[in-house]
């Protein structure tokens, strides 16, 4: 009976080979010990259904890899940002857009991880969204690095380390069963310490996702226009200043809305 149970468990385990071998050895030892006292049937019954045990292992490993991938993606983006600031052509418009997408996607993944920082396991649906966020963030960061001519001595190790962490985490998440659509990101935001008072606005935003995206786009455009105004100094005429502001708000806001349209569902934002 124990051998039959272990064969079923082996069939259910979705783990790297070395870990699978260890789990099976520990399970065999446990079941043999338990059977000496209570018999095979009781030992197997108390150990739990193979699919339950296997799923728990897979979910906890996927959670650990997911957290590591988010930290690694953050480290890669910080390294690229520092290098672009020191050596790169930071005025490239492609780098500007890719950098914003990378920072936003990393922030979304980090929010999902922080929400569950004390939990042994994160729901599979959220892990999937976090992995997608990490992958897009890494792609954005590397695009930024390429177009700003970050030296290959930094770019190649960053790409290899980041891609290995993200791909490893994605592989662990892929084996998990689907367990629903996952909570909207705004519920993760309001669950963070000190942000509970945002619950009411978050509910409003969840019911009107496009209106909320429009407001975010407008705010991003206004922030960019303000930053541009500070960097370039006062305009020659009021008309030129207003035209410049309107153009920047339209371009930045349009880019935010286009990104939301393209990636919103993929990243679990709507």
């Amino acid at each position: 009976m124990i051998d039959s149970y272990l064969r079923r468990l082996e069939g259910e385990l979705r783990l790297p080979r070395r870990m699978r071998t260890r789990v099976l050895a520990e399970s065999r030892d446990h079941l043999m010990c338990a059977a000496e006292h209570d018999g095979d049937a009781e030992a197997v019954a108390r150990f739990g259904a193979p699919e339950v045990v296997a799923r728990r292992f897979a979910l906890e490993l996927a959670t650990a890899r997911g957290r590591m991938a988010t930290v690694m993606t953050g480290a890669v983006l910080v390294a690229i940002s520092a290098c672009v600031a020191l050596h790169g052509d930071s005025r490239s418009p492609v780098a500007f857009v890719a950098g914003q997408i990378a920072a936003t996607c990393l922030a979304l993944s980090a929010i999902r991880m922080l929400r569950h920082r004390a939990d042994a396991a994160i729901p599979a649906a959220k892990l999937r969204y976090a992995q997608r966020g990490n992958a897009v963030a890494l792609a954005g960061g590397l695009t930024c690095a390429v177009v700003t001519h970050v030296p290959a001595t930094l770019l190649v190790p960053a790409a290899v380390l980041g891609a290995a962490a993200v791909a490893g985490a994605a592989a662990r998440t892929r084996v998990l069963e689907r367990d629903g659509a996952g909570e909207p990101i705004l519920e993760d935001v309001v669950a963070l310490p000190g942000l509970g008072r945002l619950a009411e606005p978050a509910r409003w935003a969840q019911l009107r996702p496009w209106r909320f995206a429009g407001l975010v786009a407008l705010a991003a455009g206004a922030a960019l226009a303000a930053a541009h105004g500070i960097a370039e100094g006062p305009p020659s005429t009021l008309g030129a200043g207003l035209a410049s502001c309107a153009a920047l708000i339209a371009i930045e806001g349009g880019a935010v809305l286009a990104s939301y349209a393209a990636l919103g569902r993929f990243l679990g934002l709507r």
Binding site: V52, V53, E60
Partner: peptide, 15 residues
Amino acid sequence: LPEGTVYPALHRLER
């Protein structure tokens, strides 16, 4: 609790 589900916790504490 199913005894087999304690092992993932032991592995996690080790990690």
